[in-house]
Simulated scan of single mutants.
Amino acid sequence: MTHLRGVKPALSPDREPLTKTPPAPKWLSEDARGEWKRIMPRLIADRIVTRADLTGIENYCVAVGHVRAIERTFATTGTLDKTLFGMQNRAMQTARQLAAEYGLSPVSRARVGGNAADDDDDDNPLTIGRNRR
């Protein structure tokens, strides 16, 4: 029996990816729109995003926008409000999880395109540095 719990499949280019960046939704905050403009060219170039993914990208941008807005509040007031800190923490977690879905983190970018070309098919990490036949 194959056990795949906790194993994420490799990201790969989609069959029907978007070929140009759609405009950021007007309802996004300024911070969220800025994040949209920052990430979308990369996602389009990697051929990862389809129309069906746009809601997830919007949600990622909203979460990043909340993180930045709350951080500005902390900087402006000079105080750390526990409630806002909790909201910011949850927004950071959401943004991180969504970023991983779309190849926006170092680990998920490494998964784009599948397996490395120089894989020696040796899954035993203890053989590193040993002479192999």
Rank of each mutant, 00 (worst) to 15 (best):
N131W: 12
L4S: 07
T73Q: 14
D123W: 10
D53L: 07
I44P: 11
R109I: 11
K26W: 15
M40G: 05
L28H: 04
T21V: 13
R33P: 01
V62C: 00
R96H: 09
R51S: 13
L84V: 02
D31S: 12
S108G: 07
P106Q: 04
K82A: 12
L126C: 04
R5M: 06
E71W: 00
K8G: 03
G56I: 02
V107E: 12
S105A: 02
L54A: 05
R133W: 07
A75M: 13
G114F: 11
R96E: 00
H3E: 11
R90H: 06
V67T: 05
R33C: 03
E58P: 00
E58D: 12
M92H: 11
Y102N: 08
W36R: 04
L80E: 15
G78W: 11
N89V: 02
A63M: 02
D31N: 12
R5W: 08
E71N: 10
I48P: 00
I48F: 04
P22N: 06
V64W: 02
P25C: 00
Q88D: 06
P22C: 05
G129H: 05
E16N: 08
G86W: 08
R133I: 10
L80N: 15
M40P: 08
K37C: 07
V7A: 12
G56W: 02
Y102E: 07
T2H: 09
A69M: 09
A117Y: 09
T77P: 11
I128Y: 06
R33N: 01
V112P: 09
A32R: 02
A100Q: 01
I48M: 06
H66V: 01
T77K: 13
P125M: 05
E101M: 09
N115R: 14
R111K: 06
T55R: 13
E101K: 09
D120S: 11
T55D: 13
R42V: 11
L11A: 03
D123A: 13
T94Y: 05
A24T: 05
N115A: 13
R133Q: 10
G56D: 08
R5P: 02
R133T: 10
L84P: 07
G6I: 13
A10E: 13
A52G: 05
V62R: 03
M87Q: 06
D119G: 08
E30N: 14
G56F: 00
H3I: 08
P41K: 04
P25Q: 00
A24N: 06
E101V: 09
L4D: 10
R47W: 05
N115M: 11
R96L: 05
